[in-house]
């Protein structure tokens, strides 16, 4: 699949209909997810605020998933020197930063009624904040170098360095402090969450994933167009 889509023209043909299709899928999934979110029973401890979870937790999943995509695109760009992979990396970073920001903001809004504070320096929040800073660094490096190819390669190296460092940072921050509740969905022995909460969470997570996929394709498309426009402008200038 990667081989076939690595050709920019084939990617453009594929994403012309795939991007809107996946976008529609995202809208449907998120609509169902939201409906389930608001019809889910109140939690006996958290009351209505439990609904924050369905916005917050998928955003946190996506924050990490986008970085994995960024790392994958960077690896492809560095090893195969493919311009489409560079475009994919460049297109991915702001989306990942957006999801990370959403996770941080909704986590903070959720923490206020639950923990009585906007922010605690616990392990997970701190490592997500560091992840956000890694995205910022990636985008800053890309913006600071004028030559586009060099900027893409430098940013790719940074993304891979970050990818190696992420588990270390995660481990070190966990080691430093654990105050957050332990994982309750993906764990040995099945989820500890009732089905009434698991379904909206699943729909929202899939919806976020589809939204990301669709926006990513749209952004890569605009990158390809921008490069073509630059090429045409150069040609016209002689």
């Amino acid at each position: 699949m990667f081989q076939a889509l690595a050709n920019p023209q084939r990617f453009m043909d594929f994403s012309r209909w795939a991007a809107p299709l996946v976008g529609i899928k995202a809208v449907i999934l998120i609509a169902i997810g939201l409906w389930l979110t608001f019809t889910a029973p109140e939690d006996y401890q958290q009351g209505d605020t439990v609904r924050m979870m369905f916005i917050h937790v998928p955003a946190a999943y996506m924050a990490m998933f986008c970085y994995a995509c960024l790392g994958g695109a960077s690896f492809m760009g560095l090893v195969f020197r493919h311009s489409l992979a560079d475009a994919a990396g460049r297109a991915c970073a702001p989306l990942g930063a957006g999801f990370t920001f959403l996770a941080l903001i909704t986590g903070s809004l959720w923490g206020r009624p639950m923990w009585g504070t906007w922010w605690v320096w616990d392990a997970r929040m701190t490592s997500v904040l560091v992840l956000f800073l890694l995205y910022i660094g990636y985008m800053a490096l890309q913006a600071a170098i004028d030559d586009e190819v060099k900027a893409a390669r430098a940013a790719s190296i940074l993304a891979l360095v970050g990818l190696i460092n992420l588990p270390i940072i995660k481990f070190s921050v966990d080691w430093w402090n654990t105050l957050h509740q332990p994982a309750s969905v993906f764990r040995a022995g099945g989820p500890t969450m009732p089905a009434a909460y698991l379904w909206p969470l699943a729909f929202m997570a899939l919806g976020y994933m589809a939204l990301f996929g669709s926006l990513w394709m749209v952004r890569v498309r605009s990158e390809v167009w921008r490069k073509r426009a630059n090429g045409l402008a150069l040609q016209a200038a002689g």
Binding site: V130, L133, L134, A140, I169, F171, S172, W175
Partner: peptide, 13 residues
């Protein structure tokens, strides 16, 4: 900006 987030582990340890 690039390096400070990566300094987290050594500072912690």
């Amino acid at each position: 900006v690039l390096v400070l987030p990566l300094f987290a582990p050594p500072v912690i340890f």
